[in-house]
């Protein structure tokens, strides 16, 4: 299976009143078709921005994006529109991402209508097919999003994303607002669809047990920068970056007899606005040394297929 997406030194900065905000900085990775890259990290670390930039829903500030071998970084508006057929997104927030004035059938049909490739009858057929596929009973076709619960609303989002039969989907926290049972159903659904259609996913979440379950590789971000990337199992077995270690130890375990030593991460978050040349994690890192305060660490392959950006990684982990 070949590589479907490659991202090289991708950056997205926003202008704010206090200066340039580095939402995503120098992120690089590639994904093979049919695989899932999980993206985890603190809220505000740039996960959604990364997803949107990769899809060209927002323009990158720097770096390159290759989709199916083609450089899509600077394509025309028209080509960008065509890209929507192959690249889709399931939004984080099923409450606000759906137009409240459209009913379920119209919401799912909406992306199809922009491409004007199907007549009314065909669109209706596809809509029902999608509703079946995501397990949304057809009798909800004329309901409005506010009349439905979170699980069904999220299914609308998934049906919408699938309607154009894309190859690649950014799933931006698709299960965060759902209870564990519906969450498990949606995760199984996404996995089944992946298998049937050889879909490729970027799966953004902060639920670590979910990301472990669904991902082949995991990318950990911190204040816009990537701090660690490796195969999913490896990350949980051998987290190397101090932030990842703190993250994994903070997972609440659903067992009241579980005694666990938590690595507490204290201290303030670094600001993503005009960040100085230093490790983004330095203010909360228990292992920080002088070099961490004057230079941003490079992103290195510390072990085979295991990338980390930390000056002291080898010392900390006795490598």
């Amino acid at each position: 299976m070949g590589e479907i997406l490659r991202v090289e030194k991708l950056s997205k900065f926003f202008d704010t009143p206090s200066g340039s905000l580095h939402a995503v900085e120098n992120v690089s990775f590639s994904i093979e078709q049919g695989k899932t890259l999980g993206v985890v990290g603190e809220s505000g670390c740039g996960k959604s921005t990364l997803g949107r930039t990769v899809l060209k829903l927002i323009e990158p500030t720097g770096g390159k994006i290759f989709f199916q071998g083609k450089d899509i970084t600077n394509i025309s508006k028209k080509e960008n529109r065509a890209l929507r057929k192959d690249m889709q997104i399931i939004f984080q927030d099923p409450f606000s991402s759906l137009n409240p004035r459209l009913n379920v059938a119209d919401l799912i049909a909406d992306p199809l209508k922009t491409f004007k490739e199907h007549n009314k009858k065909e669109i209706e057929e596809i809509v029902f097919e999608m509703m079946d596929l995501v397990g949304l009973s057809r009798r909800y076709a004329y309901s409005y999003p506010h009349e439905l619960d979170g699980g069904r609303r999220q299914r609308i989002g998934i049906a919408r994303a699938l309607a154009l039969d894309p190859k690649f989907i950014v799933c931006d926290e698709p299960v965060s607002s759902l209870d564990v049972s519906i969450q498990a159903q949606i995760l199984n659904l996404l996995q089944d669809l992946q298998e049937q259609k050889r879909l490729t996913y970027i799966f953004v979440t902060h639920d670590l047990s979910v990301v472990k379950h669904i991902s082949d590789d995991i990318l950990v971000m911190y204040v816009g920068a990537m701090v660690e990337k490796c195969p999913s199992k490896e990350l949980f077995a051998h987290p190397l970056h101090p932030y990842t270690k703190g993250l994994l130890s903070a997972i609440p375990i659903p067992n009241i007899h579980h005694e666990k030593v938590k690595v507490k991460l204290q201290g303030e978050l670094s600001s993503p606005i005009e960040p100085p040349d230093e490790c983004r994690f330095v203010k909360r890192c228990p292992y920080a040394t002088d070099i961490c305060r004057c230079k941003m660490p490079d992103y290195e392959e510390v072990l085979p297929n295991h990338f980390v950006s930390c000056h002291n990684c080898k010392n900390i982990n006795n490598l």
Partner: peptide, 15 residues
């Protein structure tokens, strides 16, 4: 239904 951190399962068992 909760995905376990300790075990690997292919598919989750939702209600």
């Amino acid at each position: 239904s909760i995905p376990s951190l300790d075990e690997d399962v292919e598919r989750l068992k939702p209600i």
